[in-house]
């Protein structure tokens, strides 16, 4: 049992990377032939876990290319993921927000309309106002999937008030060689208005892409920044 758990735990990262790669490729492409069920090798516990980890991003190609056309296969697997990994009572802010993001994205992008999805758990954003910028930035980077169009408008508006602090977070993340954090922040900054010119966001996104190219999640973030917001081309 323990051995199987070990195998599954190493393969979660691999499945997450595979799905991230599939999403990024779909974002790069021009036509809307993406299907989440298509990038999952198996429909098992690890696959559901990977969906939960990537959250709304598993549906990002639908947000870019328009509504999902493929039957109900994607809906089914997302519903299972939401059922399998609801936020626990002691869940972190990030856990709650990412869950919300996946529910919101399902309502918005999957066929069958907004009905029948689990309720969005309450998530507060007071921390956007009060956290010192290093912590704010790190957390925001973990919620980059919520920068998809139409999701979490309140959160995006709150983050916009601290654009300069997020930009400082980008500088710090790059210095630490935390490419994943930098990519997540860069993606938020790609969406937010009034990013300081001297940050050099476009060059920064290109730089992070090259330096972090061994991490499929980095590629996903910078690709989303480029395809949704035209930054870092």
């Amino acid at each position: 049992m323990a051995e199987q758990a070990q195998q599954e735990s190493t393969s979660l990262s691999a499945v997450v990377a595979d799905v991230a790669t599939g999403v990024a490729l779909a974002l790069e492409g021009e036509c809307g032939s993406y299907a989440l069920s298509g990038v999952l090798a198996q429909d098992d516990a690890v696959a559901l876990a990977a969906i939960r980890v990537l959250g709304a991003d598993v549906l990002a190609p639908y947000a870019l290319h328009g509504g999902a056309a493929r039957g109900g296969a994607d809906e089914t697997v997302v519903r299972k993921a939401l059922a399998a990994y609801p936020p626990r009572a002691d869940a972190s802010e990030v856990s709650v927000w990412t869950y919300r993001g996946l529910v919101e994205a399902s309502r918005a992008y999957l066929p069958g309309g907004p009905g029948g999805w689990p309720p969005e758990p309450p998530a507060e954003s007071e921390w956007v106002r009060t956290e010192p910028w290093p912590r704010l930035a790190h957390r925001a980077s973990q919620l980059a999937a919520l920068s998809l169009p139409g999701l979490a408008p309140g959160l995006a508006a709150d983050l916009a008030v601290r654009t300069e602090d997020l930009a400082r977070g980008f500088v710090r993340a790059v210095r630490r060689r935390d490419w994943l954090q930098a990519a997540g922040l860069g993606r938020w900054l790609a969406r937010l208005p009034d990013v300081p010119e001297t940050l050099g966001l476009d060059a920064g996104l290109r730089y992070v892409r090259r330096m972090g190219d061994s991490d499929a999640r980095v590629t996903l973030q910078v690709t989303a920044a480029r395809r949704f917001h035209g930054r870092g081309a």
Binding site: W133, P134, E164, A167, R168, G169, V171, R172, R175, R176, P196, T198, L199
Partner: peptide
Amino acid sequence: AEYLRLWTPAWTET
């Protein structure tokens, strides 16, 4: 001065 205002806090922190 504006450039320094923006980025000095980031450098100081790191």
